[in-house]
């Protein structure tokens, strides 16, 4: 399984610098993968989970991710959890957004100009792909893959979507240990992808109540689709609902 990543840098002021920055950004992602993978037997996450590492021995990265997860857990009343129902440590709910945002930070620091980074459907954008308009991010309809629920046009920002439609119920409610139910997908816009990704996962775990909750925890807009096909959103989210394609 791989999550596809792509970076689009439409007009870098310095091409060599941009190439280097993109390479660095991707190596950051690979580093994160090695550190956090549940599938690599000697990854730091696996070793910590197995009790081979103490808390104080952890890398700053893992410490930061666990702190993020902890904050998200508290903020969501326990719905967000990096402990799977069987007790194993699974940082995937935080790491993808965190690692992708870090990769985006490399590009920002290198001043590559406008860019769009897409990591498995989670998106960070900066600037304008063409002068005069922001990046257009289509938010997929969970059942009808050839339609978009909304098209978000934004310059600087992040969009994350969590859903059950491809991976099945892979998000669980940390309060009950049951797999999350009620929502087919949740999309959150925020200033950064760390926030957006954690919130999107939390909304999926919380269910319909998560929409208003995320709105009060750093989301600039929230959209969710219930299992029975209703679209929920906060005020900003509902404003995004368009009919980009013929209806």
């Amino acid at each position: 399984m791989g999550i596809p990543m792509s970076v689009d840098v439409p007009a870098p002021p310095d091409r060599r610098c941009a190439e280097l920055a993109v390479r660095t950004a991707f190596s950051r992602l690979r580093d994160a993968d090695r550190r956090f993978s549940r599938f690599v037997p000697d990854s730091e996450v696996r070793r910590f989970d197995a009790g081979e590492l103490r808390h104080e021995d952890l890398s700053p990265d893992l410490t930061e991710v666990l702190a993020l997860a902890d904050r998200a857990g508290k903020a969501s009343g326990g719905a967000f959890s990096v402990r799977r129902p069987d007790g194993t440590l699974d940082t995937d709910g935080v790491v993808k957004g965190w690692a992708a945002q870090r990769a985006a930070d490399v590009l920002i620091a290198a001043e590559v100009g406008a860019f769009c980074l897409n990591a498995g459907g989670d998106v960070v954008t900066r600037g304008e792909p063409v002068p005069g308009r922001g990046w257009r991010v289509g938010v997929r309809d969970p059942w009808d893959a050839h339609r978009f629920l909304a098209v978000v046009e934004q310059r600087d920002g992040a969009v994350a979507t969590s859903g059950t439609y491809e991976r099945g119920a892979h998000v669980w409610d940390g309060r009950t240990g049951a797999t999350a139910s009620g929502l087919a997908s949740a999309t959150v816009l925020a200033g950064d992808l760390v926030t957006a990704d954690v919130l999107a996962t939390s909304v999926l775990a919380l269910g319909a109540d998560g929409v208003a909750w995320a709105s009060g925890h750093g989301a600039s807009a929230v959209l969710a689709v219930t299992d029975d096909g209703r679209v929920l959103g906060d005020r900003a989210g509902l404003r995004l609902l368009g009919r980009p394609t013929a209806e």
């Binding site: 399984m1 596809p4 689009d8 897409n118 991010v137 859903g163 997908s185």
Partner: peptide, 30 residues
């Protein structure tokens, strides 16, 4: 088949990128 259609519609919607929780379709779209 739906995904193939999506690409065409994505073109008509003029999106630069797609946000979705993805697995098969992401691989496909990728």
């Amino acid at each position: 088949p739906v995904l193939a259609q999506e690409v065409l519609d994505a073109q008509s919607a003029q999106v630069d990128t797609v946000s979705g929780a993805t697995y098969t379709s992401e691989g496909y779209r990728e």
